[in-house]
Each structure stands twice: as structure tokens, then as C-alpha cells.
């Protein structure tokens, strides 16, 4: 079909549109960077002394907790960005211009692809800033450049998965308010994992859940790639989760986009 011949150029056009939105209205981006930075500082300087002592070992304390916390905070950054994506997608779907796109001979996937690629770029930006702050307050990765590249790759993959999911979530609602609340469960899920405290300290039922939910293998893999802790089969499980979430999010979002607009 004529429309499908232009998937790439149409997606690039839509990406330009989304990047221009972000550039012109940076408050959402700043919010997405601000939340993880504030939580990082809060956890390290307010809770860090006590939590670090609980991690055991001799060096103990704040620095030890900082090292433990960073992978979780990086993932929190990805989750916060996903929340921003859901909000901007929900806002966009209420705009008349999307109805116009539907009556034009353009690749149908391009509207969604533009959002996803734009959001992943935005997330990468946020991750760089958060990592910069972590380094500034004393975080020191112990592994080599190759492992860092692998960590960046895993974060990109996670971002892709959560972004497709939030694009679908953003489209599934009719109001921006609902969309902004939907990805809250991602935040909650993060705290019910190994991001902030080791799962061994949790009661049995909760511990089982924490160890088998998608964020924990991703965090454990990141921790291994940045600090040299054992990864085991977490890496494979993490990549599998990312692939599965991406696929579900993609298929769901596409179906929602094909759906007829609401009758007004």
C-alpha cells in the first residue's frame, strides 16, 4: 500500500513533532528528571545512613547504600518517564489533529512510533542527568566500559517496554487525569522489589512476589553490570520480561489506535 511505503519517513515526521512538543513545553521533562533526583537525594541522605547499616558488612553506611540504590533509582527514572509518556499520549489523543491524521494517507503506526521513540530519547536524557547526580554524590561503578554499555542497553530495552505499555495505557483512557494515575502501579511495583532494600529482609509471601516480578531481575542485572555482583540467570529473565512487555504494549496500543474514535 502507498501508506506503508512511507513508514520510516512518516515516523520521523511524527518524531520531529513530539520532540518539538518536548522542547517547547519542557515542564513535563523537568518533572520527569526532578522526581528521581529528589528521591535519590532523599533516600541517600535521609534514609541512607540507617538503611546502609542494615545492609551489613564493615564499610557500611551511606556510601554503601548509595551503591545499592542507584540501579533502583535508574529504573525509577524509566518508570517516571513512562508516566510522562502516558500523560502526553492521553493529551495528544484528545487533540483534533490526531483525528486529522486518521483521515490522511499516512502510515498508521507512525503516530505511535513517533511517541515511543520520542519518549525513549527523553528517558535517555533523564537517565544521563540522574546518573550524573549519582556520580556527583559519590557513586562509583566498579566494572568496565563494556558492562556500562550493556547496562545502557538494558535500560534502553526497559524504557522501550515501559513506553509501549504506557502508550497503550495513555490511549486506553479518555481523560488525562486517569492517564496520569495509571502508571502509578509501576512506582509501587518498584518499591516491592530489590531496588531499595534486599528482598531477603521481607516476609515470605512478599519476598516471593518481590523476587518474581519483572523489575527485580532487571535491577539485579543492572547491579551486576555496574557493581560486579553476581547476575546469574537474572539477565535472561530481564530481557525476556522486556520483550514480553514490549510486545503486549505494542499490540495493545495498535489495537486501541485502530479502534474507532468515541462518538461525540
Amino acid at each position: 500500500m502507498t501508506a506503508n511505503a512511507h513508514v520510516l519517513s512518516d515516523s520521523a515526521t511524527m518524531l520531529r513533532r513530539n520532540l518539538r512538543h518536548m522542547q517547547r513545553y519542557p515542564s513535563l521533562t523537568l518533572f520527569m528528571i526532578g522526581i528521581p533526583v529528589v528521591l535519590l537525594l532523599l533516600f541517600v541522605f535521609v534514609f541512607g545512613g540507617t538503611l546502609g547499616a542494615g545492609l551489613g558488612g564493615v564499610s557500611g553506611g551511606r556510601d554503601r547504600y548509595l551503591a545499592y540504590l542507584v540501579p533502583g533509582i535508574l529504573l525509577l527514572t524509566v518508570a517516571t518517564a513512562a508516566q510522562g509518556t502516558a500523560i502526553s499520549v492521553a493529551m495528544d489523543m484528545t487533540e483534533g489533529i490526531v483525528a486529522r491524521f486518521r483521515t490522511m494517507a499516512i502510515s498508521r503506526a507512525s503516530v505511535l512510533t513517533g511517541h515511543v521513540v520520542g519518549s525513549v530519547i527523553q528517558t535517555a536524557l533523564a537517565l544521563v542527568v540522574v546518573m550524573g547526580v549519582a556520580l556527583l554524590i559519590g557513586f562509583r561503578p566498579t566494572t568496565g566500559p563494556l558492562a556500562w554499555v550493556a547496562a545502557a542497553g538494558l535500560l534502553a530495552l526497559t524504557s522501550l517496554a515501559l513506553t509501549w505499555l504506557s502508550v497503550a495505557l495513555g490511549m486506553s483512557t479518555r481523560s488525562v487525569e486517569t492517564a496520569s494515575n495509571l502508571p502509578m502501579f509501576l512506582m509501587l511495583l518498584l518499591f516491592l522489589g530489590s531496588g531499595f532494600v534486599p528482598t531477603q529482609t521481607m516476609p515470605d509471601g512478599l519476598r516471593w512476589f518481590a523476587e518474581n516480578q519483572p523489575f527485580t531481575p532487571i535491577i539485579e542485572t543492572l547491579r551486576g553490570l555496574l557493581l560486579g555482583t553476581p547476575i546469574g540467570d537474572s539477565g535472561v529473565i530481564a530481557v525476556a520480561w522486556c520483550g514480553a512487555i514490549s510486545l503486549v504494549g505494542f499490540l495493545w496500543a495498535r489495537r486501541l489506535y485502530e479502534r474507532e474514535p468515541a462518538h461525540r
Binding site: R17, R20, A99
Partner: peptide
């Protein structure tokens, strides 16, 4: 309903 991109 206006089918314009208000942010551009």
C-alpha cells in the same frame, strides 16, 4: 473541532 496542533 479544530484539527490543528496547538503546541506548534
Amino acid at each position: 473541532f479544530s484539527a490543528v496542533d496547538r503546541f506548534l
